[in-house]
């Protein structure tokens, strides 16, 4: 397949780097200011060198990359709330010209799921978005394999930063601010960790799962989720939980058409209490009990592997 990779950050650059290993050709690559376009395949090393040296990937216009020669548009620009732009516009252009879309960007399917599906119905292209929930973990494809109707509940730890903070506070008896600063130093938390610690990122993933489970029924957005974050959680709360064999985790719960995100008490050794940045999703199925999927929920190569798995499914 010929790929147009829009976004040249951790995810976009990893997709470009790994595409050839999966047998695909990158024919367009764009960041916010520039693009490299070549119908025969761009010079990947040259694009990486220029991004490194000059902050641009080539001499073309990013808009031309979205219009350009490709079979699949890989959307890896920043997740935005509300209108989900610029990602949504890229999805629109690709589908209107009957090309496929694979999303890493959560915005379009968390905030405008019905719009995306409507565009897809009128297009010969389709949209896949495995990478938006749980990075490398095959959450959405497992739900699809089981059939959403067979899934009665989905619970999970879907934000590595929040999980790192909580598990470290629990293990070391350290305060929230201290552990957050440490996570930032280690590069686990971003300079602005707001969406990770206030539950927004986890809630977007919950909304995506709810959209997939409702299968064209109700549409979910961030506004439909009941969200509480972990900011300034008391160290003493984790201590008391531990005395009782429990711990605290930021849990996303999608049950009975409700999306809820918040810190919850879970048994210390339960599957839903992973440590560090690890993610886990637990599917409750109608006939097969509980199924746990755990792994790395973020990271450039991890997320790119989910993107490329989607490309393979098209």
């Amino acid at each position: 397949m010929r790929l147009a990779v829009i976004g040249a950050g951790a995810v976009g650059s990893s997709v470009v780097e790994l595409a050839a290993d999966y047998g695909h050709t990158v024919t367009a690559y764009a960041d916010s200011q520039s693009a490299a376009i070549d119908a025969g395949g761009i010079d990947v090393d040259a694009a990486f060198d220029r991004k490194q040296a000059d902050g641009i990937v080539g001499d073309d216009d990013p808009a031309a990359a979205v219009e350009g020669p490709y079979d699949v548009l890989v959307e890896a620009t920043p997740t935005t709330l509300g209108d989900a732009q610029p990602g949504f516009g890229h999805v629109e252009t690709a589908l209107e010209t009957d090309r496929h879309v694979v999303l890493a960007n959560k915005g379009p399917v968390a905030e405008r799921y019905a719009d995306v599906r409507a565009l897809e119905r009128d297009s010969a292209g389709s949209v896949l978005f495995e990478a938006t929930v749980g990075g490398a973990m095959p959450v959405l494809s497992t739900i699809a394999d089981f059939d959403p109707e067979q899934i009665t509940a989905v619970r999970g730890v879907l934000n590595g930063t929040a999980n790192f903070i909580l598990s470290r506070m629990g293990a070391e008896g350290l305060g929230y601010e201290h552990v957050l600063a440490e996570a930032q130093d280690m590069g686990v938390a971003e300079a602005d960790p707001t969406f990770d610690v206030d539950g927004t990122d986890a809630a977007l993933k919950g909304a995506i799962v709810a959209n997939v489970l409702s299968d064209g029924g109700n549409e979910y957005t961030l506004a439909d989720a009941d969200v509480e974050g972990i900011q300034d959680i008391e160290g003493s709360a984790l201590e008391l939980a531990a005395e009782d064999g429990h711990t605290v985790r930021l849990i996303v719960e999608v049950v009975d058409g409700e999306v809820r995100v918040g810190p919850r008490l879970v048994p210390e050794h339960a599957p839903l209490a992973p440590t560090g940045t690890r993610n886990i999703v637990q599917l409750e199925t109608e006939h097969a009990g509980r199924l746990n999927i755990s792994g790395r929920g973020a990271g450039g190569p991890e997320t790119a592997s989910a993107v490329l798995a989607d490309v393979g499914r098209l």
């Binding site: 619970r155 959680i233 008391e234 429990h246 849990i251 719960e253 919850r264 008490l265 048994p267």
Partner: peptide, 13 residues
């Protein structure tokens, strides 16, 4: 006050 609730019925998932 902040409440940290148990997960699931009875809290034992």
């Amino acid at each position: 006050l902040r409440v940290i609730e148990p997960l699931g019925p009875g809290g034992d998932l």
